[in-house]
Design a protein around this nucleic acid. Sequence first.
DNA 1: CGTAACTAGTTAACTGCGTTAACTAACTTG
DNA 2: CAAGTTAGTTAACGCAGTTAACTAGTTACG
Lengths: 197, 197
Amino acid sequence: MDYNRLLRNSHIFASTVREVLERHFLEEASSLPLTISQFYLLKLISNNELYQVGEIAELMGVSNAAASKNIDKLEGLGLVTRTTSEGDRRATLLTLNPKGKRLVQTYEDLKAERLSPVLDQFDPAEIEELSRLLEKFSAEVFRFEGSTGDELENSYCLRCAVYLERDCPVGDILGGCPYNTLYAAHHPEHAVTEGSG
Amino acid sequence: MDYNRLLRNSHIFASTVREVLERHFLEEASSLPLTISQFYLLKLISNNELYQVGEIAELMGVSNAAASKNIDKLEGLGLVTRTTSEGDRRATLLTLNPKGKRLVQTYEDLKAERLSPVLDQFDPAEIEELSRLLEKFSAEVFRFEGSTGDELENSYCLRCAVYLERDCPVGDILGGCPYNTLYAAHHPEHAVTEGSG
DNA sequence: CGTAACTAGTTAACTGCGTTAACTAACTTG
DNA sequence: CAAGTTAGTTAACGCAGTTAACTAGTTACG
């Protein structure tokens, strides 16, 4: 049955992404005992240095306390550095150490290398179509979730900031993705204007 | 860039499946404090009663101890019942109570209802194509993982038994999916013969 | 047959990551 | 400048997983 087949393949795909692309490739790229979450944190900082602890917590969908403890660990491993912000001395800014930069790069390189033969099995048109359908499915799910009465904003965190581009339709439906909001705050000169989604 | 777009959409899709279809729909279907894993356990039993504790542990990719503790919890909630096997008095067989059956059914109904308007946004041909591409991607990832020297069998658990059909190409590549193996043990009369893909 | 080796399951001690609540320090407001 | 707010850390706890030790039942074989 089509419906069951789609559900099964969706589950298997989701598990494959998490277990192989996210967990296993990370384990291969580094012998450090990092969880997927901790590596996300690293990637977030590598995308945009000078995040504050609270911003990181929001992008990861966890409490400040959890973010702080994860940062303790990454700092202990020599991957990131805390600096007190000059402008607001309560705030702690995060930067990536060379060791952290190298780890992120090693992971990205390994993933690209491992995925390359996989993607070679697909037509470019198939890749395009898969991308489109994945995006459409996610967007439609949230569109209808939003119409069942629940508050959509802040009720889900897909931890998508790690991969997010500024014009992400799923993020838009989710009620202004936090990445966009923070990006706008960090780069006021080219904030995403509303309605551009 | 195509590659990044595919990675981003894959991550978002994977998170959507996990956070919405698996976690949120479950929370909506029941106020019981069940984790996704504990609900999988319930679904496994609902697919095939009389599993043993160790079989459940293998299908879920966790230790016997963890499976046993999860069963404690489900038993405490009145969802499943342990029975000592007649044939082998060391073994504990698991059956679903009416309350457990109802919970699984409520979740399935709710998921079908919520997904129906989502799927209406797609052509049947698009659904078909999405299913095919999801399956192909997962299968190709594991095919190449298998060729990098690591032992494939037992190194990943996608917890796919919950959704698995008997002829799953991903399971085959993973080195004989545990579901098939156990299915054959439980139903020797129509075991999947090797080479049947 | 009867002991040795194995197997199924549970329990105990521990780890790791999350939570909320309490706290400190710094900033803002009037 | 005192009152209230905000950023971050720390403490106490919960929950799900692990390995190791244990109990009880089964199998193999001298």
